[in-house]
């Protein structure tokens, strides 16, 4: 249960931010999840439901996922391509000298809190 562990880290970070901002109730948490981050969005939201409802700060809050498509760039011919389709090998020149540009994110983008909080 990889996603549950990640949910615990998200909860810890959100609690910290809430404390710093004097927030006692969170409506939603927005996550940027990269396509090749190894996090399965459906599992993450399921784990969130289970774990967040145990926290007064987060009870009933929604975890919104903003998926980030994975893009790799070829260092040799500078082509940017779809990582999931072509993997490590550049479809344009066949080089494996390639670097993942984005798609590896497991990032908390923001939290939404009621205005009268």
């Amino acid at each position: 249960m990889h996603e549950l562990g990640i949910v615990f880290y998200i909860i810890r970070d959100v609690k910290k931010t809430a404390e710093e901002n004097g927030v006692t109730r969170v409506s939603s948490v927005v996550m940027n999840i990269g396509e090749v981050s190894t996090v399965v969005p459906e599992y993450l939201t399921d784990c969130w439901r289970w774990a967040a409802d145990k926290e007064p700060l987060l009870k009933g809050s929604e975890l919104k996922i903003n998926p980030i498509p994975a893009v790799t760039v070829c260092e040799d011919c500078k082509t940017e391509y779809d990582t999931v389709r072509f993997g490590k090998t550049c479809p344009s020149c066949g080089s494996t000298n390639t670097v993942l540009l984005r798609g590896n994110e497991v990032e908390i983008e923001s939290i939404t809190v009621p205005e009268n909080n």
């Binding site: 880290y9 931010t17 990032e107 908390i108 923001s110 939404t112």
Partner: peptide, 18 residues
């Protein structure tokens, strides 16, 4: 409860561990 405020975090979940 209608009005919502957004607090930006923009931080990797792994950042503190790193």
């Amino acid at each position: 409860m209608d009005d919502l405020k957004v607090i930006e975090i923009k931080k990797s979940v792994f950042a503190d561990n790193e």
